[in-house]
Design a protein around this nucleic acid. Structure first.
Lengths: 251, 251
DNA sequence: AAAACCCTAATTGTCTGACATTACTTTTTC
DNA sequence: GAAAAAGTAATGTCAGACAATTAGGGTTTT
């Protein structure tokens, strides 16, 4: 790797690892370092940047945390530019989205609205293109949700699985990736809700409506089902939160 | 901080920094460490986890790379749990999305479809709630786009600004955050397109249609405009990539 | 009494040198 | 020729040191 491809010289004697990480990150983003290319060894980078190996390592760990590089030990090892997979990107996005919601006092209403708006965007595509296994997953999850012995957490998890199958039915990996954050990040908020047998029934009925619409390739009906489900969820949440603020409730 | 809040003991003598980072990350996610809480000092963490300070530092740098913590020097300094801001989350999401698209041979068609599907999801909300300044930005950007002296890059940048104003009009920060990745990550792909005066005119006309619909609070018309704009963009891209067909087109 | 100054302690940031571990390559041995 | 052994280069970890920064307390000065 050419030294010219590693950005401007480092001026300040502080935050060196951040500067070095930014330098390498930029090189990756602009394409000066291509996928699977091996970076210089830590020893060589420490010479190039004129810092200690410890500092270089801190910079590399920053990049590794963002899945930008991977490292391998051994004689032919080193740090390699990572091809960011949809899976890794999704995992990061879910973590970030979840923390964002939990730390910023985002109302249930706002998050829920965003989620269903985005899902409605997928519905027509999913109705068009869904494969058999998407329908199968949706049906299976509905089946599971009907089990009265399910805990609220398990019910929510199944709900997420149902909706992910709906989104994946659009057969657009970019869409699936973007939606993963919105859908999964809602789960902790949904877990705050106690689902009565009655509200579960309402949700399951709407899930059936949506699955039927997707199977019948009726995107408009699927969207309508999602709208109804959003309304149901919002009502449910309002009731739960109202009850909690009215009387001191144990967790 | 209680040692019990830092996860299971570390077994393997490799990837220690990753394990420690995961341990602390989990503590933050489940809420055992709250925003602005100070982590134990590096020296104390190295005792708790029974590793060297260098290893602890590598773990902390991983967390810092994800904006999960910030550090401060000095007597009362240390590492503090960061409140993830929408801005920081957006920046990360844009970086990840951009790299994801450039590294994974995602077709222009797929990315474009995802983007416009998501934008259509925002259109009805934006039509309902947009404020004056959203409309102003949209109009201003359309004005700018009409300047024939604009480079293709500047035209694309203005296009992004227009669409972000449209999305922000929905007044839902979660939606804005999710969409930022989809819209901005497209920019490098859009930059591969040469915009003739004629194609610019077509785009600007559609932008006007959309802005008019948003101003008139007609969500359906705005959606229709977006659909037309998507078709126009796809046609444009197909033409450009077909002309370049000498070599198999990446992206 | 208030302000300016200095000193100290705590903490992160960096450096150095060493050893352990890993995995590929080369050489040796059978 | 195949298996075993040695060599080698890289990351992973450790220990100890010093520099830089910052808050707080104590002292002196005004």
């Amino acid at each position: 790797m050419n030294i010219d491809r590693l950005g401007p010289p480092l001026d300040q004697r502080a935050d060196l690892s951040a500067q070095i990480a930014a330098s390498i990150r930029d090189a990756i983003i602009i394409g000066a370092l291509i996928v699977d290319e091996r970076l210089p060894s830590e020893a060589e980078l420490s010479l190039r940047f004129d810092v200690s190996r410890a500092t270089v390592r801190e910079a590399l760990k920053r990049l590794a945390a963002q899945s930008l590089i991977r490292t391998q030990r051994g004689a032919t090892g080193g740090a390699f530019v990572n091809r960011i997979s949809f899976e890794a990107a999704q995992a990061q996005q879910i973590t970030t989205s979840t923390l964002l919601l939990s730390m910023n006092d985002v109302s249930f209403e706002t998050a829920c609205e965003a989620r269903y708006a985005l899902e409605r965007a997928c519905a027509p595509l999913s109705a068009d293109r869904r494969h058999l296994h998407h329908l199968t997953v949706m049906r299976d999850e509905i089946e599971r949700q009907a089990d009265a012995g399910l805990t609220d957490e398990a019910f929510c998890a199944s709900d997420v699985a149902f909706h992910r199958a709906l989104v994946d039915g659009a057969c657009n990996p970019v869409l699936s990736y973007q939606l993963a954050g919105a859908v999964e990040a809602m789960q902790p908020l949904m877990n705050m809700i106690t689902f009565t047998a009655r509200s579960r029934d309402a949700i399951i009925t709407l899930h059936r409506t949506i699955a039927d619409a997707i199977e019948a390739q009726d995107g408009q009906a699927a969207s309508a089902g999602l709208t109804a489900l959003e309304a149901e969820t919002q009502t449910l949440a309002r009731r739960v939160f109202a009850r909690r603020s009215g009387s001191p409730t144990p967790l």
